[in-house]
Design a protein around this nucleic acid. Sequence first.
RNA 1: CGGGGCGUAGCGCAGCUUGGCUAGCGUGCCACGUUCGGGACGUGGAGGUCCUGGGUUCGAAUCCCAGCGCCCCGACCA
Length: 568
Amino acid sequence: MRWSNTFIPTLKEDPQDAEAISHKLMVRAGLIRRLTAGAYIYLPMGYRALRKAEEIVREEMNAGGGAELFMPALQPPELWKKTGRYDDMGDVMIKYTDRHGKEIALGPTHEEVVTDLVSREVRSYKDIPLILYQIQTKFRDEVRPRFGVVRSCEFIMKDAYSFDADVEAMEASYKKMYDAYCRIFKRCGVPYVAVEADPGLMGGTVSHEFMVPSKMGEDRIIICSQCGYAASTEVAGASSKDDRKKDPEKPKNIEEVSTPGLSTAMDVSKFLKVDPRDLIKTLIYIADDEPIAVLVRGDHEANETKIKNKLSAKTLELADEEKVKEVTGGDMGFSGPVDLGIRIYGDDSVKNMVNAVAGANKKDTHLVNVNPGKDFKVHQWMDARIITETDPCPKCGSDIELKQAIEIGHTFKLGTKYSEPLNAKFLDEKGKECLIIMGCYGIGINRILASLIETSCDKDGIIWPVSIAPCEVVVIPVKREDEDLFSEAERVYEELCEAGVDVILDDRKKTIGVKFKDADLIGFPGQVIIGSKGLKEGKVEVKSRATGENSFVDKDKVVESVKAILGD
RNA sequence: CGGGGCGUAGCGCAGCUUGGCUAGCGUGCCACGUUCGGGACGUGGAGGUCCUGGGUUCGAAUCCCAGCGCCCCGACCA
């Protein structure tokens, strides 16, 4: 490929609408351009990297027993109504009415479509196990598209679905996919961590998220330094032990105190000069239309995922100001568990608190010396909070680290969540009709690129691994106008092409500085520099983008040294 | 959806507070010449609905009103 024949608009300056490093670099390096919020054009260099990532995914999915197919983005909403996800998806699903007045949805994912397909075609236990996958465009009307290609409204996803006769077989398929994911991310050079996660809307019992630690990540994970346990903060078990070194006090009697305008735990804690850990935060939620209260300690955050799961609630929303007033009789920020006429769920760490501070359900008033058991009863104690960095590892008790991370893949054990409503059954050996046990597995291809760049760049630009670099090597003639030099560059270029190296020839009539800067910015793993000085001695320079190491090699031995740099 | 910010040449920005000559700077682009191993230099040139619409005014990039678009924080989310 010749530079002049392709389209690589690089930029000297950061685009003003980009914040994330990966976003800035992808735009500057001429990989992408924004069309509108959450929708990006992949320019030739970006598209090449994307396709290489796709190809790795394809190879490993095939190796894991997957069969590729391709399903439409246009989907009938009826399927979504059958599984109940039409409402669950809400406005995330993009819908329109066609000329016949029929509603059409743009697929945000394909569980419904693929399960419907399988329900029609699979009859016998002999037809399964089956793993179907596709690499296809998904549409989601995101509340907030962000960080360039990290969260966009239109993106490329590899989605796979496994269909098995029983749970054991599904576990085997799950394992195959899990292993394939590990191979995929390793080959793509992204430093991933597989964590236990919440299945969320997808359903099922167990799921794993494949995360890449990064400041730009939208999710938080914990990693144990000792045993290596890793989990999303949404599911990681928080300790129920009291982490305070304090002599036990005798419970005293409740007193009211005036706390004018102090509605946050921090404000109250400062004003009353008490440790936030002596505060009880009372959050009013609406769980499936029923108002409930959730108690967590002043320094903790409620974990809506855990609460939702423990209550088996379909929806869980924080009550608004009006609702709080109606339910508690007090203003928002002054709610407390004492004399509260609704179900109260308490986080385990609240259970043994003594003489705590809580809201009084009364304007500008808090209560001191509140004691669980004595002053209020809870319906159920549970782990209802988000794990913190000071918590011990839920598995081994050692110290844990908290990190932000980008989710690049997610695997789910679905069970019969989709096969049941969509009637995906098969006849077993005994002629008995059984529901198919499913699993599903997603990878955000765009996010492979973004998270790779996020974690692999320097001040000069991107540092690609050979596996998904837009091109493996760039050949740079120092002076385009020097015909001898350029024809030597062309010769080297041809030779590399013939040797099967993915190479681009920078044949632009630009000064050498520009070409070096662009090569570093885009980040081709290998650079071959043809200059007149070296050429006089029959040598060309071969340089590694990652290490900066260079060597002058005999011009007849370019292919070998390039391959050495590429790690072949 | 709530809070904040931005919108002026392809890109990055100044000008706006206090309205007033032909709307500027850097970079990029075109031509010619000189350069040529880390974003070269000179000369000449092209490129603008100052986001849109309305209003105030003798006069609006600048002031007022409405709308649109984009980014960030939050809420939300596979």
